[in-house]
Design a protein around this nucleic acid. Sequence first.
DNA 1: GTTCATGTTCGGCAACCGTCGAACATATGG
DNA 2: CCATATGTTCGACGGTTGCCGAACATGAAC
Lengths: 119, 119
Amino acid sequence: MRWHTAEVASRTSSPLSNPDELDFQTVLAALSDPVRLGIVAALAEVDGVHCGGFALPVGKSAASRHFRILREAGVIRQWDDGVRRLNSLRRDELDHRFPGLLTLAIAEGAAVRVPFAPE
Amino acid sequence: MRWHTAEVASRTSSPLSNPDELDFQTVLAALSDPVRLGIVAALAEVDGVHCGGFALPVGKSAASRHFRILREAGVIRQWDDGVRRLNSLRRDELDHRFPGLLTLAIAEGAAVRVPFAPE
DNA sequence: GTTCATGTTCGGCAACCGTCGAACATATGG
DNA sequence: CCATATGTTCGACGGTTGCCGAACATGAAC
């Protein structure tokens, strides 16, 4: 048998917790960092980008940490696809739980939006 | 001549800067602390409370710091009245600059709202 | 002037945060 | 099997943050 897409974490032991309880202060803290806000703004343009698809101003380890903070705050969802880890905004959950916040973050994050990596 | 109310800082040398340019990330950072979010939620109930009017879970110096962070982020406005320093939410500016954010903060901050000091 | 009430500032401390480099783990492709 | 690509994890480092107590500054009341 063959899975058309791996929906479970296989890159690490911890099983990619995408939380269902969103905490206001945790979300604010996640969005108050310029790199993370820039990622959110970029994901608002193109959804489903893998971690390496952004031209981040930090190294791999710091980038990995930023994505994990965004995921654990419930701002983004992550899932594995082959060797890559894809990212998308949790628009519906955020809009439902904190109406207007994501819209605001996307608009304000435009100033620090992260560019996409070449090819 | 006599001033009916001191509208300028006299308690310290730095002249109580109430900024007119509000930065999104700075505001988020200010609101992501439980004590400060609790102060905002309390100010939404009763406006114009002096610093000592809250029963904060921290000492004087930490409290002073929290109020300063809120003021410098543009979340609250402060002015002196005799020996006391009064606080109020900058509702209009916040609503105009970040529509919906303060409403959200007040609602979510209810869980950590700070009590008022006795008498 | 003296005393009291109210906040601010300073120094110090512990904890946390953002970053890096190196090592590791997993999937894919020869 | 081996090499490569993609992320994660670990240990370390420096900077920031939140907290406290002590000292200071200001205004009011006596």
